[in-house]
Each structure stands twice: as C-alpha cells, then as structure tokens.
Design a protein around this nucleic acid. Structure first.
Lengths: 172, 172
DNA sequence: ATCCGTGCAAAGTCTTTGCAAATTA
DNA sequence: TAATTTGCAAAGACTTTGCACGGAT
C-alpha cells in the first residue's frame, strides 16, 4: 500500500521547489533536496521527528533544525500541507499530485480515512459568501468511529488488518 | 459586546460540573468553582494563560497547573470545548448554552467569525455514512479573508472597529 | 566574495508531573 | 480518616534561535 511516486512527479516537484527558492533568493541545497525526496516518499502524515528517523535509516543525515526550517518552505510552495489532529503536533502530508481531501478520524483506533473534499469546499464557499468572507481554504475533520470500531463497540480494539478495505486508511 | 450569563446558566453549569465530579469520585473544590465561573464569564476563546491573568485581575488566585488540570474536566463534561487554530495552542471556548457553530478565520486580521454548523453537520453525516463511519462530531474551519480585509486587499490592516457589523466576531 | 544554509546546542513555549502540605467527602 | 487537590518547581515535549563554519551563486 505504498503510494507510488513517479520520476515525473519527482522532477515536477523539484522544479517547483527550485523555482520557488530561486524566486526568493534562496538556495536549492542538497539537504533541501533530500528532504523534498523523503517527503515525496512518505505515504501519509508525518511529523518532523518521523522524517528525521526515516532519513537516518536511509543514511541521509540532516539536523532536526534543518527539517524544522525546511518544512514551512515546502508547505509554502504547495508540496506539503500542514494538518492538525487532536494532539497539537505539527504534522504534514504531501499534497502535490493529490486530490484535495479531508480526514475522518476514528476516536477508538485512531485510524484515519481520507475523503474527497469537493462537497465540503462547495458548502464552505456558500457559507463564506453569506458572510461576505472570501474562502481560501478550509480545515475539516470528522470525528467518530470507523466501521470496525462501531461494530466492536465495547470490545477490545480491532486490529488494523481486519478492516483494511479498498479505503485509504492509516493511523495517526 | 460581552456575552451575558444569567445566574440560571451559572447554576445549571455548577450543577452539571458538580454532578460530573461526584460521579467520578472527584471533588468540587473552590478552585474548580472559581475556574468554572471565570470560564462562563469569558466571552470567547481563551487559553490557559489568559484565564490565569483574568483571574489574577479579579483577585482569584490559582496555580497554572490547576488550570491545566481543570480545563480537561470542564471539556469532558461539555461546559467548554477545545478549539484549534493555526497555532498549535490549546484554546477553549464555553459551549454550554451555545448553538453548535464553527469558525471562519481571516488570515489577514485574524478576526474570527462564527457561523451555525448545522449544514456542516448534515454534510458530515452524509459523508460519514458513505464510509460506514459513525460521526460523533467534527472540526471545521474556513480560512480566508473577511470582508474588510478583502476590500482593503494590499492596504494596511483595517482596524477592528470599522468592521464590527452585527456579526459575532472577535480576534484570535 | 557575499550571502545563505547547516549543525549544534542553548533557549523558548506550552504543558505535564512529582511531591508535600492542605482540603474535601 | 482516607483519598483527592493544590501549589510550586522541576521535568518534558516540541520548536525556534544564535552562532561559527561551510557552501552556493
């Protein structure tokens, strides 16, 4: 279930990032490139720490400070996006070729299910318009119980394998 | 523009909190009572620090640790609710007699506008059902520009007074 | 050559925790 | 009386920052 990233996507991302940096008088350093590649390889949400560990395992060494300094840049140029869950922790997710989506979080097993956000965006724009507000984006999250947990109601936590359907789901 | 809290509301809240505590073998201490009252008096969002300062000004002294320990209790019994904005800071808002609402945040002036969340809840339930997910709640936020800021586009930050309409709005 | 970036460690924020003394039920 | 709370300070988790050296244009 690993998200595939084509070499085309990688090139596009690199071009995007490089141009973004150049336009601001910033440099495309090996560290930034390594981070970009690592991020593109990350199937889902991640936080600074996880990225650091993953990189160490592939022998790519960067200081944590560099990660903290680079993530905002990647977010600003639209390669990744910050997402918030209950724990107030800075998480990010790659969004480059991804269709806009929001998340459903199971309060029991912490499983996260993504769903297309177009309807939400439509409603968002309607509501915003009513208040003479110009919507640029939104943050939406449904909290509840996934099918497995609502069926198990009261029983022990079902293990992840028994519920993997065709749905894109993963854990916090 | 201060939200009025009737003595009835206060009594109801106290009863709620007291019962909640009793049911769990916890005690209704003067500190918890002071915090409850202070929270009910807070018109909008607040964070631990603000609460502490507000209380000091009214001569009510409690340790910050007590605040951090009490807020989750008030949230658990439905008197307040945690809300998240961009900065990953623990904010809360009183929700006792309030109609469910979500927020619109102006990325320019940080003004926050509340809006009824019933439509969002409806859409949420539809989406959840499609994924065999049982929705218990949601977190929704529209990010964009408020009317004042979108008109001022590119100019300096409009000051809060010039845009106070009938809308409930306040700042982060 | 100049300005930017990295690493490292120190400093910051916000939040949680350990403990002894003080309270509540 | 027995168990919970509080206040205080120390500890924690996560993030930011200062600085000297190294690297990019």
């Amino acid at each position: 279930m690993t998200k595939e990233v084509s070499s085309q996507d990688i090139e596009a991302a690199e071009a995007l990032f490089r141009d973004f940096l150049r336009d601001r008088g910033l440099k495309y350093t090996p560290e930034r490139r390594m981070l970009l590649l690592e991020v593109l390889n990350t199937p889902q949400h991640f936080e600074a720490e996880q990225l650091l560990i993953a990189m160490r395992q592939s022998g790519k060494r960067v200081a944590k400070a560099t990660i903290y300094r680079t993530l905002p840049l990647l977010a600003e140029c639209g390669i990744i996006k910050q997402v918030q869950f209950e724990d107030n922790l800075a998480r990010y997710e790659p969004i480059l070729g991804q269709a806009p989506h929001d998340h459903m979080v199971c309060g029991q097993c912490r499983r996260i299910i993504e769903f297309d956000s177009s309807e939400v965006a439509t409603l968002r724009d309607e509501i915003a318009a009513r208040h003479r507000f110009v919507a640029a984006g939104h943050r939406f999250q449904i909290i509840g119980l996934c099918s497995a947990c609502s069926e198990a109601e009261g029983k022990e936590r079902p293990d992840a394998t028994q519920v993997q359907g065709e749905e894109l789901s993963y854990e916090l």
